[in-house]
């Protein structure tokens, strides 16, 4: 039995490599696809036949990508960067949430509030669950699902304040995310009581060095992609 929603989601999947299309562009085309399929179906065809005709009329992913890229070459870079940033923040947020919960449970266990066996079981369960959810969400986003959420983010903030977002991401968000990660690491070390032990000063120095080197490198790489794509669009 033919299912239109399933067919549309397969069609959406086929556009996931078309970098020149933003999530909003895909949402706009999806509306078109559904409307054309409904019109053709009303002429007396089955919904499957109508869908095949409508998706053929809309054009192949490759052809669509070429047309969209011609109209706005910088969109391809923007799409890629937003996914990287969104993935980075998404992973970081979900990962910290999981760590917070698991660390608390573990502390309760080691503090004697919970039997140690139970604490370990809950720890592993929450950790496994958290990681599964994290990766599932990332996979869904990368496949162009969750478009209602991602399209809303792109529509409300990213498209409206394009330049501002670029600057924010480059100058503020990347180092900020790194500092937040470090702060979280330090706090969890402190709360888990490790500060009473002598933990490796060399390791901390190494972590600081990596962060210091990684920040400018990340910014440099992003800047390179930003300006190389701007140059292409100016040509």
């Amino acid at each position: 039995m033919f299912n239109l929603n399933e067919a549309v989601s397969i069609w959406r999947d086929s556009l996931k490599d078309a970098d020149a299309l933003s999530a909003l562009d895909v949402a706009e085309l999806e509306g078109h696809l559904r409307e054309e399929a409904a019109r053709v179906e009303a002429l007396g065809l089955t919904s499957e036949e109508a869908f095949v005709i409508a998706s053929r009329r809309i054009g192949s992913p490759h052809a669509l990508n070429i047309e969209y890229e011609k109209a706005d070459p910088s969109q391809a870079y923007r799409t890629r960067m937003y996914w990287i940033v969104l993935g980075m923040f998404g992973y970081w947020a979900l990962n910290s949430l999981t760590s917070t919960v698991t660390t608390s449970v573990f502390l309760l266990g080691s503090g004697g509030y919970l039997p140690l066996g139970t604490a370990w079981a809950v720890y592993l369960l929450v950790w496994g669950l958290g990681m599964t959810v994290t990766f599932r969400v990332l996979v869904l986003i990368s496949r162009g699902r969750l478009t209602s959420i991602t399209a809303a983010i792109q529509n409300r903030y990213l498209r409206k304040y394009k330049l501002l977002v670029d600057v924010l991401v480059l100058a503020v968000a990347v180092p900020l995310a790194q500092h937040a990660c470090r702060l979280l690491m330090t706090m969890s070390l402190y709360h888990s009581g490790l500060h009473n032990h002598q933990f490796d000063a060399n390791l901390v120095a190494f972590a600081a060095l990596v962060t210091t080197v990684a920040s400018p490198m990340a910014i440099g790489i992003l800047l390179y992609f930003l300006y190389s794509s701007r140059r292409v669009s100016a040509e």
Binding site: E28, L29, G31, H32, E36, G59, A71
Partner: peptide
Amino acid sequence: GYAIIRRVRELSGGEVEWTDGMLYPVLH
């Protein structure tokens, strides 16, 4: 978008048949 394409087809008697991949980038 969809209504604009329908309108162009209607007015031209089908002689200006746009593929959708063409109209949306034009609009953008």
